[in-house]
Simulated assay, not measured.
Amino acid sequence: MKTSKNVRYLTQLALLTALVLLMANTFLGYIRVGPLTMSLLTIPVAIGAMLCGPLAGAWLGLIFGLTSLANAISGAGGLTFFAFQYSPALCVVMCVGARVLCGLLCGLIYRGVGKLMPARDKTCAFIGALSAPLLNTVLFMGALVAFFYDMPAVQEKVAELGAANPFIYVILSVGVQGVLEAVICCIVGTAVTVPLKRLLKQ
């Protein structure tokens, strides 16, 4: 029984890892919006964190982060390219560390909400799925502001947006793309997780 569960766990994780890599290499993974990028990779991260647990969420966040770092190095990542030139180490923290923490916290939030509302599968999945894009935005943009706000490329964008301070800059930068990312992840994450969770219990 334990072996069967382990095989199922590893199979699910492998499939979700492949999905992250597949999405990262198609238009579904990264959608450029000006100097920033809207990412739908929070969807498989959220699903994995909810189905397989916080550690699986952290693993999928790691894969997500590594693809983001690869884009930063290659020049396909907008501001992250300049961030990598500015400080490779801090860019790794922003691209990879933020995404690992995002997946881990998403799984912990889902697990915590599940304990509070054990009979509300849809509500738990909704909150868990919503937490992933929100955490991704807060952690990534927080790191960008904390580490790279004085970087010339960021200051050019600050001047263009007319942002009076870092908080306003984040709000103006995220804008509609952040809302769309959250809505899409919420809908897809909930729609996939709830029936799969029930199927796996059976």
Rank of each mutant, 00 (worst) to 15 (best):
T80C: 08
V174N: 03
A125N: 05
R99G: 05
E181K: 09
A163S: 15
T193V: 12
R32L: 03
I31M: 13
A129Y: 09
A153Y: 03
L144N: 11
R8L: 08
T80E: 09
P35V: 07
A14L: 04
A46G: 13
L135D: 00
V183G: 02
Y30T: 12
L139F: 14
V33A: 12
L90S: 00
C124M: 10
P195W: 01
D150M: 05
L55V: 12
L66Y: 05
L41S: 05
L15P: 12
Q177T: 09
G103E: 01
S173K: 08
M141P: 02
F64H: 09
I109G: 02
N6G: 11
A143R: 05
T11F: 03
A76M: 00
L16N: 09
M23N: 00
G48P: 10
Y9E: 07
F148I: 01
A182W: 08
V96C: 02
L40T: 02
A24M: 04
G142H: 14
G142F: 14
V188K: 00
L22P: 00
Y9T: 08
P152E: 06
N71I: 00
N136H: 15
M94S: 11
A119N: 12
S68E: 05
F81Y: 14
G162P: 13
P118H: 07
S4K: 13
A182K: 03
V138H: 01
A153R: 07
V92Y: 03
L90E: 07
L79H: 02
T37E: 08
L161S: 06
L21K: 09
M117N: 03
G48L: 07
A70T: 11
L130S: 14
A163G: 13
R111F: 01
L15N: 05
A58W: 04
Q177I: 03
Q177F: 09
F81K: 04
S131N: 08
I73A: 04
